[in-house]
Simulated assay, not measured.
Amino acid sequence: MPSAKSGGFGGGFFAVYVPSPVDLEFKFEEMAKPAYDLPLPDPIDWEDAFPVVMSQAAILFDLEKRGALKVCKSAADLRATLGSGKLAAIFHIEGAEAIDAELNTLEVLYQAGLRSLGPVWSRSTIFGHGVPFRYPSTPDIGAGLTDHGLRLVKRCDELGIMVDLSHLNEAGFWDVARHSSKPLVATHSNAHAICPHSRNLTDKQLAAIRESDGMVGLNFAVAFLRDDGRMLADVPLEQMLRHLDHLIEHLGEDRVGLGSDYDGAVVPEELTSCAGLPKLRHAMAKHGYDDALIAKLCHENWLRVLEKTWGA
Rank of each mutant, 00 (worst) to 15 (best):
K70A: 13
S20M: 04
F61Q: 12
R79C: 03
S84Q: 03
K86F: 05
A35K: 14
L109W: 04
V22C: 05
F28E: 01
E94M: 03
K33N: 14
F26S: 12
P19V: 10
V52Y: 10
S55T: 14
L109Y: 09
F50C: 08
F50S: 14
A15P: 06
Q56P: 12
P34D: 14
M31H: 05
K86D: 04
V22W: 06
A57D: 01
Q56G: 08
E25A: 13
K70M: 05
G83C: 08
L109V: 02
G83Y: 01
L87C: 01
E97L: 03
L103H: 07
I90H: 01
P51T: 06
E94H: 00
L109G: 01
F61N: 05
L103P: 07
Y36S: 09
L87S: 00
Y17G: 14
L69C: 13
L38H: 04
F28S: 06
V108Y: 09
L63C: 13
G10E: 03
L24V: 10
I90A: 02
I44G: 08
A98Y: 00
F26A: 12
L69M: 15
P39M: 10
G11L: 03
G11H: 09
P41A: 01
D37I: 01
A75N: 09
Y17F: 15
D62E: 15
A49H: 04
V71C: 11
E97M: 01
A75I: 02
